[in-house]
Nucleic acid binder design. Structure first.
Length: 491
RNA sequence: GGCCCCUUCGUCUAAUGGUUAGGACAGCGGCUUUUCAAGCCGUUAACAGGGGUUCAAUUCCCCUAGGGGCUACCA
């Protein structure tokens, strides 16, 4: 059996982007799925890439771990979890990077660069004026020992740069795309260690992936351009190159980069709106992966059975909110009523604030939940959908009571008729099924038009054009409150 | 500009050197029906373009176009 150790290596710069969750999920499943890389025996590791203190956001690591856990992605090793390859936070591994940077320097695979940011800036401007690709001009690449010593003695700050081959081809292999060729002459002498002594992503991730024995690197394909540089670095160390799987980006509706501007992009946003982890996971799995059968509805457990490398593709996917909504509605409908009641509770505070205490019981919430379950796309929809259940007096124009071509006067007359019937129904019989039975029977025997009675009744009860049916609503609200609404509509 | 990646219905995606190019979401129509949903049934809709290779190309190759990414002492 193939060994598989994969990692998620986020930088703690804020919330978790939905695209990163997709990357995380695919990596996780490759490690853990029965049809994955290692028959479900792979390891999934969390490593925090916090080498850019400028972009770091307070509390982001905790947030990341929390939301990943919510989504159902578990780690075998990582900060707070442990493991034999720790620490799993890069700023706690600075000595390690220092050691390997010195090694590279000693072996002449890297060099110190004393160029100031100002000089680099100027250089790039000149290059782009001359329509040349902006690239380090390698001024410091050929500094002799004395010059280096002199600069160091003067305490000049320096970065460590990777020494790229001057000519030839670098051929790399991506699992999803096969061979990719780069000209060595197109490769910049990448910065490995910044002047503050902290490594760049490029350097730290290669060192860590090797030391942590990562076998397969999954990452976004925005890293494809640095792939040859990574490979060269492995070769400079004499290390085996792990397999690379570059996942295509997730794009917005117009095909551009999915960004905050166009709406929700963070998993936390979706969670706050009431999307279920089941839906998000199913949705993310399907972007860039497809089962060999036509099956599309997958729980995490099912993905753990079916997800495989050969179902993965390399083309970018556009984020389709409609499909996410569908999936979320689907999983919402599959919840038990009591589960749903618990889920909607946090969204209902606005409604409950104005409600009589008798309307705040778990039992009432469950009854309410049952009537809106099949209508919800996301949990936050529950607010508007159930408002009428919690308020004392409805406000709606009388004309709304009229069904199709009937007048509101006629609607009120019909309501009065219904009222007498309803009053005769005992509290014990005041249940949705029984109410429906009685009213429908009455309508039939008296040869009444169903719509001319049920529409006004429903509007009287809910004050809404669209809502659950009158029998369901009366079943939830009880006799007293239901009749009160009918009276209010008649008055 | 340079380098790299990608290209099947609007969207996510199957399949195949010879198919009526399949499924799902969305759309549309119908059934059901007091409304909205849900459900069921049906239906519109795609191989980016041009060259090759071949008896045959959506499938293999090349070019073009389009889209995207990278081009920092950010990841």
């Amino acid at each position: 059996m193939e060994k598989a150790r994969l990692r998620l290596a986020p930088s703690p710069t804020g919330f978790l982007h939905i695209g990163n969750l997709r990357t995380a999920l695919h990596g996780y499943l490759l490690a853990k799925s029965k049809k994955g890389l290692a028959e479900g025996q792979g390891k999934f590791i969390l490593r925090i890439e916090d080498t850019d203190e400028k972009r770091e956001v307070e509390g982001a690591v905790e947030g990341l771990i929390k939301v990943l856990d919510w989504a159902g992605i578990k780690f075998d090793e990582g900060p707070g979890i442990g493991g034999e390859f720790g620490p799993y936070v890069q700023t706690q591994r600075l000595d390690t990077y220092d050691f390997y940077a010195k090694k590279l320097l000693a072996e002449n695979s890297a060099y110190r660069c004393f160029c100031t940011p100002e000089r680099l800036q100027e250089m790039r401007e000149k290059q782009s004026d001359m329509k040349l690709p902006p690239r380090y001009d390698r001024l410091c690449r050929n500094l002799n020992v004395e010059q280096i010593k002199e600069n160091m003695d003067q305490g000049k700050p320096y970065v460590v740069r990777q020494m790229m081959p001057l000519e030839g081809e670098v051929i790399v292999n991506d699992i999803l795309r096969g061979e990719i060729k780069f000209n060595a002459s197109d490769l910049d002498d990448q910065v490995l260690v910044k002047s503050n002594g902290v490594p760049t992503y490029h350097f730290a991730s290669v060192v860590d992936d090797h030391l942590m024995e990562i076998t397969h690197v999954t990452r976004g394909d925005e890293w494809l351009p640095s792939f040859p540089k990574n490979v060269l670095l492995y070769q400079a160390f004499g290390w085996e190159v792990p397999k690379f799987i570059h996942l295509a980006l997730i794009l917005n509706k117009s095909g551009g980069k999915l960004s905050k501007r166009q709406g929700d992009v963070f998993v936390e946003d979706f969670r706050a709106k009431g999307y279920l982890p089941e839906a998000i996971i199913n949705f993310c799995a399907l972007m860039g992966w497809h089962d060999k059968t036509d099956k599309e509805l997958f729980t995490m457990d099912e993905l753990l059975e079916s997800f495989s490398l050969d179902g993965m593709g390399a083309s970018p996917a556009i984020f389709d909110l409609d499909k996410l909504d569908y999936l979320n509605g689907y999983y919402l409908r599959r919840k038990s009523v009591s589960e749903l009641a618990v889920l909607i509770r946090p969204f209902l505070t606005e409604n409950l604030v104005q409600a009589h205490f008798s309307l705040q019981t778990p039992a009432y919430l469950e009854a309410v939940a049952a009537t809106v379950q099949e209508r919800l796309k996301k949990l936050s929809d529950v607010v508007d959908m159930t408002r009428f259940y919690f308020i004392d007096k409805l406000a709606f124009p009388k004309e709304m009571l009229a069904w199709k071509t009937m007048t509101s006067q006629q609607a009120i007359i019909n309501l009065q008729e219904l009222k007498t019937i309803l009053e005769q129904i005992s509290i014990d019989d005041w249940r949705t099924a029984k109410l429906e039975e009685s009213i429908m029977a009455w309508l039939k025997t008296n040869d009444k038009k169903v719509g001319e009675y049920l529409w006004p009744l429903r509007v009287a009860l809910t004050g809404e054009k669209y809502s659950p049916g009158p029998f369901e609503v009366m079943g939830v609200m009880g006799k007293e409150n239901s009749l009160k609404r009918v009276d209010q509509a008649i008055a």
